[in-house]
Amino acid sequence: MTAPTGPTAPTGTDGRDAARLREALATVHDPEIRVLTIEELGILRQVDITPDGRAHITITPTYLGCPAMDTIRADIRAAARAAGYPQATIDTTWSPPWTTRWIGAAARDKLRAAGIAPPAPAPPPGPAPPPGARLLPLAATAPRCPLCGAADTTELTRFGSTACKALWRCGTCGEPFDHVKEH
């Protein structure tokens, strides 16, 4: 994870305990994109151990209405219990807002290997956009086909199997594929 705004270092009364717990929680997979963990997606934000020894975990949703959040909370609770923290509290924060820029290079490779086109990398910093301009360009660049690598791809629908994915089709190999939308 190279993004400076990515998950922050664990803190708490005992940094080593928090780091160990974080390692355990980092193995929790996203229920909708099974090849990635909640750490790789940037959903896991902060792991603390309170002075009385309880786990305090902060997560952020990818989309406000993401229906996977309850499952993610249950999975985190189970992982924390297995790591010796039966009474974990889980907070949800919206700030800073989740962005696909937090998905690192290794996670993008995993997505591609699973047949899912990763989001385009963050654009280089440029001049400030004019007032009223969109905060993010919609489908700025067409993703390459994750199956055959061809650049000749077409968007079928911007809203795919989950809130964070769009459906595309490759013009070369003819296969449809999911694309994690830039967000």
Partner: peptide
């Protein structure tokens, strides 16, 4: 709002 604005754009 910072979260929702990106959803609204879609």
């Amino acid at each position: 709002a910072a979260k929702a604005v990106k959803e609204s754009a879609y």
